[in-house]
Amino acid sequence: MVSIIWAVLIISGIFWAGLSGNVDLVTTTIFSQATRGLTAGLELIAITAVWFGVSRVAEKAGLLTGLARLVTPLLRALFPSIPPGHPSLGSMAMNLTANLLGLADAATPFGLKAMNQLQELNRQPDTTTPAMITFLVMNSACVTLVPATAIALRASAGAAEPSVIILPAALASVIATATVLVADRLLRRRLFGLR
């Protein structure tokens, strides 16, 4: 899919330039844009290094486990089909907390573990359970308190205040998450007759 979008952008650009008698522009654009991309990418290395360094310290300091403990009671309400104390609740808490802090790399291993533990409760191993769907939609709607990537990109582009987007982004993600959770609950009730 990425291939198609990428190719469409290039091919349409080349034909458009050609049809409007500007085909020379293609070559100059390729070189100038590749150079600009390189510069932008190099600046990104610096800011990614800082953010990854800080988030590693945060992980080691136990910020993740501490927050996850606060999240767990909330999860019990969102996943009524999982027996209390099931290990999947812990993994999901860690995954969602890591997402909340913008630690995408830390989130994935916990997410995979949670899926494995949810699969143990699954009586039809080739089909999603209601709990899995809830977990997947929460993951893709992605409640984020610290959108680290976006802040890093803004900082390396020289924004006056790179982090001003934190609260708008967090509120937007809360709106999206609330919407999918409500939709999920309605669908679950209709299709499975579950709470």
Partner: peptide, 28 residues
């Protein structure tokens, strides 16, 4: 780890810059 990740991103960023640049500069 951050440096390693960002270095892996470099080719992506250059590739996207070229594609979006053509898309924009051509007037499309």
């Amino acid at each position: 780890d951050g440096v390693r990740l960002a270095v892996r991103l470099l080719p992506h960023i250059i590739g996207i810059y070229v594609a979006i640049g053509l898309f924009r500069e051509s007037g499309f």
